[in-house]
Design a protein around this nucleic acid. Structure first.
Lengths: 236, 236
DNA sequence: TCAAAAGCAAGAGCAGTGCTCTCGTTTTTG
DNA sequence: CAAAAACGAGAGCACTGCTCTTGCTTTTGA
């Protein structure tokens, strides 16, 4: 697979990314529901039928945007983890959580695209699962580090069926982590996005206004639920 | 305000609910994105322009469906609370949580309509806030009972800004509950719907398959995070 | 080298959408 | 019982996703 061999392939790649760029711009302005292929084509100075050479349907364009959004969020999460000061794992956990929330607030429509109601058919295409897991893996990496440092307490044991799911998952991902901690994480993972979604989708309007402080203490609570402990703070 | 005084008003009410009924049917089948006024009118044997006498726009129809969905879910939550055996508050908490999840699984598109990405403009109309709070109030009622029974431990204290929000909320709702417990609940509330959304929107596909057991233990974890304790189970 | 094949932009066109306006008809109101 | 309001039907506008055909350009392979 040569890198952009012919002039035609290069042109195609450029047009493809120009379409995605313009679509992302319109998505950010008006939301996924109002994203129209014709408007994108019009803005790019091409006729609408030409766009179908690059994306066979509107849903395919949306799927491409979904994948990009997952990757963008995953990248932000990974960056937050690696650039966070190597202090307590709890601090790194909080840093990644904050990065996720910050990304969501900066890209509300893209966030809605990936964590709101599934817009196309009903189930996400297979191509989206890998990018979608990046964010979760960044969070899991924090836990793994904490486990290696011995800063991970053991949460309550899981039901056998859940434990089986989690064991299969740990094996597939090749991760060293206790079953109960991973099960607790799977819950915290969804709960974290519940917090972000509620804030972004207006469920907290008129209820909680101190958003930053509230999120921070909720994220700290999630860390506690998973078993993350600050080892030199025995008092509470 | 007389109850359905003239024949015309009665007819109007009937047509209005027939429209909503048909719209709900199509919503359940194809989702909000594909819900079309014309199709609803066609199915009802009326011409599309006539429908505008009852709902001034598509978004208004959707808003009506949103309000109905909030009420339907809220009713399910309230019913679960009141019909649950008067055992431990933790059991009542779990019963309400289960009822919420069951409703969501039974009405996925309606759930997506209210807890997925906001479909119309961007912010929910004012009329939706009251029905939207019913579900949260049902959960809060469980906590209040637990507090009266002395089965509510004190979660970690909140940041001052959050405490202020919560105090204002408690005053407005006229509820007797500690500030820290209410703050913890506000987080658990969003986290609960995060769990449901992840399951419904396919985020758990291939990850967690033992959905019932997983949800139950996650909901129990939320109860723990709020401070709900089973008083005659001191061991852990 | 040069014809065949493939990729491409453009346009016309189809079925469908939300929404508006007009025009008779019916029902309610004062 | 006349004026006013509400209503259903139809035509029409601007828009959408998508398909098909028509020429042109680039790439391919013998």
């Amino acid at each position: 697979m040569p890198a952009l061999q012919g002039a035609r392939e290069r042109a195609r790649a450029e047009v493809t990314s120009a379409i995605k760029e313009e679509a992302r711009r319109r998505l950010a302005e008006e939301g996924a529901a109002k994203l129209s292929l014709r408007a994108v084509a019009r803005e790019l100075g091409m006729v609408s039928s030409a766009l179908y050479r690059y994306f066979p349907s509107r849903d395919d364009l949306l799927t491409a945007l979904i994948i990009d959004a997952y990757n963008s969020l995953g990248e932000a999460a990974e960056r937050a983890r690696t650039t966070a000061p190597a202090g307590h794992p709890v601090a790194r956990w909080l840093a990644v959580c904050r990065a996720i929330r910050a990304w969501a607030r900066a890209h509300p429509h893209e966030y809605a695209l990936i964590y709101g109601s599934p817009v196309p058919g009903y189930q996400a295409p297979q191509d989206t699962t890998a990018p979608a897991s990046r964010t979760a893996l960044a969070l899991l990496a924090v836990l793994q580090e904490a486990g290696e440092e011995g800063l991970l307490a053991e949460p309550p044991a899981s039901a056998p069926a859940v434990a089986q799911d989690v064991e299969r998952l740990l094996e597939r991902l090749d991760i060293e982590l206790s079953v109960s901690a991973t099960a607790a994480f799977a819950a915290a993972w969804a709960q974290l996005f519940g917090l972000v979604s509620f804030e972004l989708f207006g469920q907290y309007d008129g209820v909680i206004e101190a958003r930053d402080e509230f999120f921070d203490q909720a994220a700290a609570g999630l860390a506690r639920a998973i078993g993350l402990r600050v080892h030199d703070a025995p008092a509470a």
